[in-house]
Design a protein around this nucleic acid. Structure first.
Lengths: 109, 109
DNA sequence: AAGCCATATCGTAATATTGCAATATTACTA
DNA sequence: TAGTAATATTGCAATATTACGATATGGCTT
């Protein structure tokens, strides 16, 4: 008991929930915003300074965001540089928006 | 320790995370879809039969969805009838979409 | 009023998430 | 190659979430 019963739901619903979960924590929202604002990539260490959480915590959140493929990562000297994978972001935007639109259409029928 | 540090994030990020959280569980996604498909309101008991989770679990999920104002509720005989608050749904859609668009624009700049 | 049906709430067990200190790893630099 | 800076991983404590049985509540029906 206690864990989400993924098996009783269809793949589509599970995936939408998985994507939404990435945006369901304010630190991750802030991290994504911050990365998007950095011209030509964002140094990981700067995120730690910006957000106000400990380095391991940021690292953990970054890995959650990476799991759905939303980040490009590249080495930049001894640091890592992150940037938004805009294609994936667009896919997320469409996924969520299509969901809302579908609900709206059905609800208004 | 352990709990989300809401106070270090701004209201906007906290609210977006709160909204996204509603859609971050497949059962809630399924419930919202199901309600939207029912012509003129959806009997709560039918949701229980449809989704395959126990009645108290559905009730709990419904209350999470209600918390952001996404549901209209009305008595219908001895049952409750739920329907989607389409205005609120639209607001959620815009909130998420504007967020994605803003990220996209910044990331591509 | 007694019984029944639908929903909510309570209590609790199982699991997941959040956050951080300590430590490991990786990569540059002197 | 030793030292250092940046990031990841590990381990763990605190809290939150998910799920459900038991029970309470509220409204029909007879």
């Amino acid at each position: 008991m206690g864990s989400t019963k993924l098996n009783i739901h269809d793949t589509e619903n599970n995936y939408l929930a998985k994507v939404a979960k990435v945006f369901s924590h304010p630190a991750r929202v802030a991290i994504i915003k911050y990365i998007s604002c950095c011209e030509s990539g964002c140094i990981c260490n700067d995120i730690v300074k910006e957000i106000g959480l400990a380095q391991p915590t940021i690292s953990q959140h970054l890995s959650e965001i990476k799991k759905i493929g939303l980040l490009n990562q590249s080495a930049s000297g001894k640091s890592l540089s992150y940037s938004i994978n805009t294609e994936k972001l667009n896919a997320c935007r469409r996924l969520m928006n299509d969901f809302f639109v579908k609900i709206q259409v059905h609800a208004s029928a």
